[in-house]
Design a protein around this nucleic acid. Structure first.
Length: 897
RNA sequence: GCGCGGUUAGCUCAGUGGUAGAGCACUACCUUGACACGGUAGGGGUCAGAGGUUCGAACCCUCUAUCGCGCACCA
């Protein structure tokens, strides 16, 4: 067998294996399999998206779960796909259109524009799939889905029609969140409130019935004064009680407006008087409804002012108009004062511009099954990891409001609603432009609506709008599966996602599952969408900022793969991904992942240099060295710890345990301790050590495979640890150590030997002797057994000789350390006598404090009475050890004099 | 305003009642027959602060500070 290269070379290993796995159809799920099912649906990335670190984190976790399940003997389906991302994709194409052709989508028309989007999709779409493959994701690509696949589209439309029939979807003129940049309605979830610095304008309105008397209000939005249709104060507010029923002059677009009283007004805020602007504020709209105030809309869909009555403002952008309106009021003496003010303003999640509350005719969904959705999580039919997300989820469901599902966007699922006369559609569009005095009732004129996929016939016009992208994603957990697949793999086993889409996606998928019941039976258990939901953390940069394109602080995962390998990236990221906590990304951590892959590679290389491995190594408990027993015992502990960490989705703990076991227990201690046997003459001992290596390498490669699929497969193959792919190798069994006599005693001996080695190395360093200088040690001990372990001691101490002398008389200048095996002396003429004395004094002082502390503890009656006996024993032993060490050190100090 | 999460070594983070840990960075030594993407040793922390519970608190309770997130309010 050719010698392995010195370093793991990802480019020559990783793509090779991925190709082979694909050729073997290793990721393809068989719905007819007799094995139990394990399934995950991938949160679909945007069709034109590229791989981000967020995806890497997310999809690595999913891959770990999928690969582990395969090894555990499950039939695994990891179903990938992509999302059409309505607003996002459309906006990208529009931007491109503006830049390259200086055109808007309206210039092209709907049909041509959609053709362009498809072109864009074909050119930029699907890149992420290749990138996920480079990462090593074991998805069943034969089942890849897209939210705009024909049957998926049909399913979405059928769901719409079904909910319409049930009366849960309705069309209505209501206050919605309007995004003036993308010019579409948004759901409440797509609005993010941010504090904004602005002004509070105090404006005086003259009382019609009492000329010369003024009513003062405070507003942040003077540009909407023309839309005021009332003035309101709190009914209990005595300051204004006499004005009730009177009128005020609106200072811009001068008109009489009524003065009313309403409970919604906070008498403490501003002057205690509110200008009521029903068209442009949610609360005002409700007040208007209660008091029958007219609704006057003075803002165009694009955010410009629509008010011919005030030519100075008409056509201005809303923010320019705000300043201009203040100037106008000032000029007319209506502006009492202006104060700087900070308030929260809703911003569009999509375009990052302030939302305009606006009355508009839209489609809404009254959520079904909210109580049931709450119950399945509360009763842990669906388990959240970490569990504190349950509370966030519950809070949302308990305060849920109807979902505005229509979007004034062309790219997406067209709403399957048809209207009899084209004029009704025109009426909708023009209503927004009509400006003043739009009566809410005006557009609810007689119109025939049919909700169905096909056109009902001539004279019917389809609704121009599309559905919120999430209205298609909420069916993702099962509409991505054909009937046969669904029968085997639904409900899915786990969902892995970022917590920022808990409402957008997770909650809605749970609701959809409960409402549409795609499962085998109608029972809740068969329709819960997924068993476990694991919420990842958000990846931030080193300064704790969110990764974003504009900040340029988002590293390209493909460059990282290039530099460190997919396995290095995966492992590095997993090791620092704390459960449900945000993650501060530092490339150093990926470097560590790469270094770990190299370490693994090299220790396998070391094994391979000593002949072929055994796939089923025979270990004889009688011939195993004590170091091997210690290692195997630790391997067993590691297997248990890994198992426990998986149960709690603590991937960082799994990674850390494996890292420590391989690097420290295996490489640093066992391999070094076994070298005398490996390079020795005794064939039995050598064979035994190599068998242990085979056993442990086989086990750790399998444990590591879900995290580092490529390098483990390569080594599995190169070492010949299995005839088939590691992907389907069963999880490692624990070493059978039950028959080993006095295992505890032997482990204690190993621990004592290792501690002695560390003490000896410390003496060398303290004595300023270079690492490569061969030196002599003397071990003063009565333990005759130790003679059997001298070769290991000597090798690990890099000593020319380690001499055991129970009666050794320390010479002046001998550095000494007390160890569980006895005292170890460094014999060298050059050792500095004064320095050694100083070192001893320091150590004695330290030990004296320890002894005092331990004594105090044991004199404490409460401690003796109440602490568990094992703890008390521990303290007793500690005191004894410390006292003995102290005595020996003091003796050593004497001998120095 | 309500709720959630964080605050542990210079940095990134583990640690959920019994002598404070890892990696990186730092210091010293070392290319020793797997690995310098390495080895060995070392320095460095009143565990945000204050109270409380306990024989014993980084860990449990209360309050405070501070950072972040969600929801509500937002004239």
């Amino acid at each position: 067998m050719a010698e392995l290269p010195k370093r793991y070379d990802p480019p020559s290993v990783e793509p090779k294996w991925y190709r082979r796995w694909m050729e073997n159809r290793d990721f393809v799920a068989n719905p007819n399999s007799a094995k139990p099912a394990f399934s995950i649906v991938m949160p679909p990335p945007n069709i034109t998206g590229v791989l981000t670190l967020g995806h890497v984190l997310n999809d690595t976790i999913q891959d770990i779960l999928a690969r582990r399940a395969r090894m555990l003997g499950f039939e695994v389906l990891w179903l990938p796909g992509m999302d059409h991302a309505g607003i996002g994709t459309q906006t990208a194409v529009e931007k491109h259109l503006r830049r390259t052709e200086d055109k808007t989508r309206h210039d092209l028309g709907r049909e041509e524009f959609l053709r362009r989007v498809l072109e864009w999709q074909d050119k930029h779409g699907g890149i992420i799939i290749e990138q996920l493959q480079r990462l090593g994701c074991s998805c069943d690509w034969s089942r890849q889905r897209y939210t705009l696949d024909d049957d998926y589209v049909a399913a979405v439309q059928n769901v719409f029609a079904d909910l319409y029939r049930k009366g849960l979807i309705y069309r209505g003129r209501r206050m919605i969140n309007w995004d003036p940049a993308t010019q579409t309605a948004l759901s409440d979830e797509e609005v993010i409130s941010k504090p904004q610095k602005g002004n509070l304008y105090f404006v005086r309105y003259e009382i019609v019935e009492e000329p010369g008397r003024f009513l003062e209000i405070a507003t942040t939005r003077p540009e909407t004064i023309m839309a005021d249709t009332g003035m309101a104060f709190h009914p209990g507010d005595k300051r204004y009680a006499d004005l009730l029923g009177k009128h005020a002059w609106r200072p811009l677009a001068r008109e009489k407006i009524p003065i009313i009283a309403d409970e919604a007004i906070d008498p403490e805020f501003g002057t205690g008087v509110l200008k009521v602007t029903p068209a442009h504020d949610t609360v005002d709209f409700e007040i208007g409804q209660r008091h029958g105030l007219p609704v006057v809309d003075v803002i165009h869909p694009d955010g410009r002012i629509n008010c011919p009555a005030v030519p100075e403002l008409d056509g201005l952008d809303r923010f320019e108009a705000r300043e201009k309106a203040a100037q106008l009021l000032q000029a007319r003496g209506a502006l009492a004062k202006t104060e700087p003010y900070e308030n929260n303003v809703g911003f569009s999640d999509r375009s990052d511009v302030p939302i305009e509350p606006r009355i508009s005719e839209q489609w809404f969904l009254h959520y079904p099954k909210t109580k049931e959705a709450l119950a399945v999580v509360r009763e842990h039919l669906i388990r959240f990891f970490p569990p504190h997300w349950e509370k966030v989820y519950a809070q949302w469901l308990e305060n849920i409001r109807d979902w505005c599902i229509s979007r004034q966007v062309w790219w997406g699922h067209r709403i399957p609603a048809w209207y009899r006369k084209s004029q009704t559609v025109e009426a909708r569009v023009s209503s927004a432009n009509q400006g003043n005095a739009v009566d809410t009732a005006a557009t609810t004129e007689k119109e025939d609506i049919r909700v169905q996929i096909e056109s009902p016939g001539d004279g019917w016009v389809q609704d121009p709008d599309t559905l919120d992208t999430w209205f298609s994603s909420w069916l993702w957990a099962y509409e991505t599966m054909d009937e046969q697949t669904r029968k085997k793999f639904y409900p899915t086993s786990a969902l892995v996602t970022a917590p920022d889409i808990i409402f957008f996606w997770v909650a809605r998928m749970i609701i959809a599952g409960l409402e549409f019941k795609p499962g085998k039976s109608d029972s809740v258990e068969d329709n819960i969408a997924f068993g476990d939901v694991y919420f990842t953390g958000l990846i931030r940069d080193r300064l704790g900022r969110k990764m974003s394109k504009s900040l340029g602080n988002s590293p390209d995962p493909l460059e990282l793969i290039e530099k460190y390998g997919a396995d290095g990236l995966r492992f590095g990221l997993m090791r620092i991904a704390p459960r449900g906590q945000d993650i501060r990304f530092d490339e150093k951590q990926i470097e560590e992942g790469r270094n770990f892959a190299t370490k693994l590679w090299n220790v396998a290389r070391f094994r391979q240099m000593h002949g072929p491995s055994e796939a089923a190594p025979k270990m004889d408990n009688q011939t195993l060295s004590i170091y091997a027993l210690e290692l195997l015992a630790r391997l067993n502990e590691t297997i248990d710890a890994v198992e426990a960490a998986y149960r709690e989705y603590q991937f960082n703990a799994v990674a850390q345990r494996l890292y420590d076991f391989i690097w420290s227990d295996y490489c640093d201690w066992f391999v070094e301790a076994a070298k005398p046997e490996i390079f020795g003459e005794d064939e039995m001992k050598k064979k035994s050590a190599l068998a242990v290596m085979d056993f442990v390498l086989s086990a750790t490669l399998r444990l590591l495979h879900p995290f580092m699929p490529h390098v483990t497969e390569e080594l599995w193959f190169l070492l010949g640890l299995g005839s088939a792919s590691i992907q389907f190798a069963p999880p490692p069994e624990k070493a059978a150590l039950d028959g080993v006599s006095d295992l505890t005693g032997k482990r204690e001996l190993v621990s004592a030997i290792y501690q002695t080695i560390q003490a000896g190395r410390n003496l060398r360093a303290e004595s300023k002797l270079p690492s490569n200088r061969k030196i002599w040690f003397i071990l003063r001990t009565d333990n005759k057994l130790i003679l059997n372990y001298i070769s290991t001691l000597a090798r690990l101490l890099n000593a020319q000789q380690v001499e055991v002398d129970p009666k050794y008389q320390a010479q002046a200048g001998n550095p000494v350390a007390v160890t569980p095996l006895g005292e170890i002396f460094l014999t060298v003429a050059a050792a500095d006598r004064a320095g050694e004395k100083q070192r001893l004094e320091k150590e004695i002082a330290k030990l004296e404090t320890e002894v005092r502390a331990a004594e105090a503890k044991l004199e404490n009656k409460s401690f003796i009475d109440r602490a568990p006996s094992t703890v008390v024993e521990e303290h007793r032993r500690r005191l004894k050890d410390f006292s003995e060490q102290l005595a020996k050190l003091k003796q050593a100090r004497e001998s120095l004099n």
